[in-house]
Design a protein around this nucleic acid. Structure first.
Lengths: 417, 417
DNA sequence: CGAATTATGTTTCACCGAAATACTAAAGAC
DNA sequence: GTCTTTAGTATTTCGGTGAAACATAATTCG
């Protein structure tokens, strides 16, 4: 299979410049993927099977564009690996993704607002999270608050950072190209254009795009940092909150579908004779495993922390056990269908479902083993997502930064064009 | 986004040879996609935005390798378009996909065996189809019969054809790389290696691979001929027979999942309280919309032709109407979940379900409108697949030929390598 | 009929990017 | 200090595409 020079179906012929751009992207991707290990120009050449000369030239260009940093002899970022032990020969110049290139991720959720600036190394340069009940809230007011918060966060970013874009994660059906939020049931928003409600489509001058929250949160599982693959390349992500969002990740990329609306696992039918759902259907997964539903069935307040539910279950409380059992049963049925359809047998539970994953796991995995056609050969597994606030905002920043890694030539901007 | 020279994540740097291979593939793809219109070297240059010189050079190489044919001044294949009206200027040399390069597609189904040889233009050079009840049949015997039939079909191919491979479509869960059929419930086969049961992994010397029937049949909807896109790039395909197979096609390509087992829509859960399924689950779609189930519920013989069912429904027969209604209801629930997950809102009904699509369509589309979250913006539609015998065999041949179009350099085999 | 026109296809050369190779730089080993 | 080893750089060669001139084969028009 020859290398494809422009996605799966390029309509345009590849030229020498294309070659260069492709290799530039390969170098950027290699370095992003390898962090936090330090790769040298020679390592890059080895990993890409290019010659040292070629790799070196490309690295130089990326360093000039700020997409890579040459680390000084004693430089070391927090959380990064130790330098390799001294060896014979000329010491290598360690390289790392550029710390100055950063993006702004934003998130509106029914329970909080968030803004977070992250750089190419995955370091959080500044952030802001505010909880609050935004169910049925006025979009204009909320977005104005987010705009102000975004500006504030940007102002707190250390000087010298180059912000390349902003993306807003929204819990609903989003028409990405049109910047249109079609429907966000938990917020009570529909048919609004959030981008237009901020200052002329930008946030403090940054081009702003929007995306689905679950798709973006799934990115934080697929990638530990921009362009750095996580441990599992293929998985189903569930974003559990009042509603249930989802995304299917295959080979590190979110499956988007024709319009970007794929992954609506919250409205997979668990039981056609089940309770009716505001979406117009019946027996949707959300009706069984949404946070409010679980807590109400357990006889708890909708705001009760997950620890309380766990306590009740541990104590053998009948209502609580049954509530968790029903949720696991429903998740089992819905996810079995999803795994049968996608053949992606790892389930990552995020949001509230991640917080109570320990209570669900056994029943859920048993249901999957029983209902997934291929379970005999590859048993489906479930894991909880790393806990963390506002993964949608983080994923949104990752998504913006991924564009730099995927096409660094656009950002290095050689004089010749 | 730069052109990517080796799939989504090339690990190797691109070199000049890569460039050439990529452009060679682009030219091959352009010509395959444009057939049956006649493109000239100049047209190729225009379509790919390469210069005439470059396009011409690449075309020459493909012609030399037999992947393209230069048509003579009066040559015209059956079913192909008329030549363009004479214009001023030097007349163009019409090009077409090579008629001599062909592949063998095979299919084993619970109801028939098939072998079919198809060339790069999509022309059937020879074929053989034999019906018979193969439920719970002995694999060795059946495959020996298929081997003999394959040899016979190959012997009837007009001289001069270059066979490049053979692929066998099987109605079950297939581990493609291992050549292993894990489970084919309708045949009653499991854990066999069909490739080994033919002569040393080849059929008359052709390298033989296997694939899932629904995945391959879906190809015949995605492509009218090898590399020629069909009218719909994104759709869910249902292969209705005794069981129900399926595949989801996105942007012309089948979504395979981690192990190639994606698309098992027959075992999506319609009702957890429904009848138990041999797969170990309950309420699977197959239990409601499999051919035997529909016909039994309608009070008909399992071998009754679809016309008889249609007659009964038209006559208002209560059992028949109810049987069809139940099938449509179940399909609606299962497909709504599939569309919610994949955001691929076109459903193509193939096999038996295609034959009775007229009876199902209204109820099914109504169910989809009610249950699909995004139906308000894009209403799901259902269509019947073009009727045709053994689409799996055709798709299997297409799949082999697609490899030539995707990487023609491997087949032209320049001396330099 | 013959010249002008026009589009196709080919030839030649320049440009550019990567490979190959030789070279310089900077450390440890002895 | 010298040797060895590895990192990074400079130079030449090779190969593929672009650009532009050229050759070719038809229609159109005088």
């Amino acid at each position: 299979m020859p290398l494809e020079l422009s996605g799966p179906h390029p309509a345009s012929g590849a030229r020498q410049a294309t070659l260069r751009e492709s290799n530039l992207a390969l170098v950027a991707r290699t370095l992003a993927a390898s962090a936090p290990a330090y790769l040298s120009r020679a390592d890059v050449a080895g990993a890409t099977s290019m010659t040292r000369a070629t790799a070196s030239r490309l690295v130089d260009e990326l360093v000039a564009g700020g997409i890579l940093d040459e680390l000084g002899p004693d430089e070391r970022g927090p959380g990064e690996l130790d330098r390799p032990a001294p060896r014979r020969g000329r010491p290598a110049t360690p390289l790392a993704p550029g710390s100055r290139i950063a993006a702004l991720g934003l998130q509106v959720d029914a329970g909080f607002l968030a803004a977070r600036v992250i750089n190419l190394r995955g370091q959080v340069l500044a952030e802001w999270v505010e909880s609050g009940d935004l169910v049925a809230s006025p979009p204009g007011e909320v977005l104005r608050r987010l705009d102000a918060a975004g500006r504030d966060v940007l102002s707190r970013v250390p000087g010298g950072a180059a912000l390349i874009g902003a993306r807003l994660a929204l819990p609903g059906i989003v028409a990405v190209e049109d910047g249109l939020l079609l429907r966000a049931p938990t917020l009570g928003w529909s048919d609004i254009r959030p981008v237009d409600m901020l200052a002329s489509g930008t946030l403090a001058g940054l081009p702003l795009t929007i995306g689905n929250e679950a798709d973006l949160a799934a990115r934080t599982v697929a990638e530990n940092a921009p362009g750095r693959p996580g441990p599992v390349p293929d998985f189903v992500y569930l974003s559990g909150g009042i509603g249930i969002g989802g995304a299917v990740v295959r080979d590190g990329a979110v499956i988007t579908g024709s319009h970007g609306w794929a992954g609506e696992i919250g409205h997979v039918c668990v039981d056609p004779n089940g309770p009716s759902c505001p979406c117009g259907s019946t027996g949707c997964l959300e009706r069984y495993a949404g946070r409010h539903m679980i807590l109400a069935a357990a006889g708890l307040d909708p705001t009760a922390p997950p620890e309380l539910l766990a306590e009740r279950v541990a104590a053998g409380d009948r209502e609580a056990c049954q509530a968790v059992g029903v949720a696991a049963w429903a998740l089992g049925i819905a996810l079995a269908s999803v795994v049968n359809m996608f053949d992606v047998p790892t389930v990552v539970l995020g949001g509230y479902l991640g917080q109570i994953a320990g209570l669900l796991r056994a029943d859920l995995e048993q249901a999957l083993r029983a209902r997934v056609l291929s379970a005999r050969w590859v048993a489906p597994t479930t894991v909880a997502a790393e806990p963390g606030s506002a993964p949608g905002a983080t994923g949104a920043a990752f998504a913006e930064l991924a564009a730099v890694i995927a096409d660094p030539a656009r950002w290095t901007g050689r004089p010749a064009g």
